[in-house]
Amino acid sequence: MSESNTATLEAGSATETQSVKLSMQQALNRALDEILSTDPKTVVFGEDCGQLGGVFRITDGLQAKHGESRVFDTPLAESGILGMSVGLAMAGFHPMPEVQFDGFAYPAINQIVCQIARMNYRSRGTLPMPITLRVPSFGGIRAPEHHGESLEALFAHVPGLKVVSPSDPHDAYHLLKYAASRPDPVIFMEPKSRYWQKGDVDTADGGTLTGARIVRPGRHLTLVAWGAMVARCLQVAELAAEDGIDVEVLDLRWLKPIDAEALATSVGKTRRAVVVHEAPLTSGLGAEVAQLITQSCFDTLKAPVERVTGFDVPYPSGDLEDEYIPNIDRILLGIQRVLEYRRG
């Protein structure tokens, strides 16, 4: 609890705090507005980002306020959006492109992997790429193909990229501003199914913005998640508490680099871990998390780290989403498998 919050509680006044209730969509919109206002080198662009304000309204009103030269529409060509970002960064700009949906990033993989991720390395540090690529990510909104994919493992595997995903409006606001202030390219994965839920945003105090964050402390088991799965894991933790199991929920937030120390601290205490993600199982980030935990906690672990994930199939559209995305029962079953495990 920060001092300013304490002071506000005592004063009983809303004027002394910067805390406001915002949806993630509003928090991101506000963050972009403030970044554009304070950094004249920032430009925001993508399909429908200008006149329309984005299909999720994240850039709503920004073109009218900051002008068509700083917030603008692009052709429907992701390789062009990201290729242009490279040129803008070389010319000293701070590009904040949007790829409208996760699955639309594939046509721009060459620009992301072969240019954005390694231009700084290739140029011996003379051409940094201060690019924040916003990608509405993950599933849960009943959209068609290419609109529900989880690309974090793909991006995390590329040297030179940083990857982050906020799970609530407060983190969305502060992590976007933090990402935009970095000299390195950051892939900013927005959980699109969480755009509209409101939460308290303390605009004055972002707290620690690097590393993971414990969103619910617990004693018996650690649920590791990011993006939209954090909210689901919090629901699961409440249900587990009914059965006497005290679950800690760790929001990883940064998916590259991963906060190995936070994993070691949390699972070192609980001695049991389940990692939950929407992406397919095989070569998903859950494997990396499980290895980091095993490396630091092998001697004290009560059971092998469990993974509850999507399946090794293309992301399914429509109602099949409910069968694909880890649901409450599948996560509870993962917890039960860990609880039941006995060393042979």
Partner: peptide, 27 residues
């Protein structure tokens, strides 16, 4: 309304969580 302003897809409802699985463990 703001919460239906997304042009693609639907806004997921935050329904009360439903469960069928109960946990049992000797800790």
């Amino acid at each position: 309304p703001d919460n239906t302003a997304g042009i693609v897809g639907t806004v997921p409802k935050d329904d009360a969580p439903k469960r069928r699985v109960r946990l049992s463990a000797v800790l």
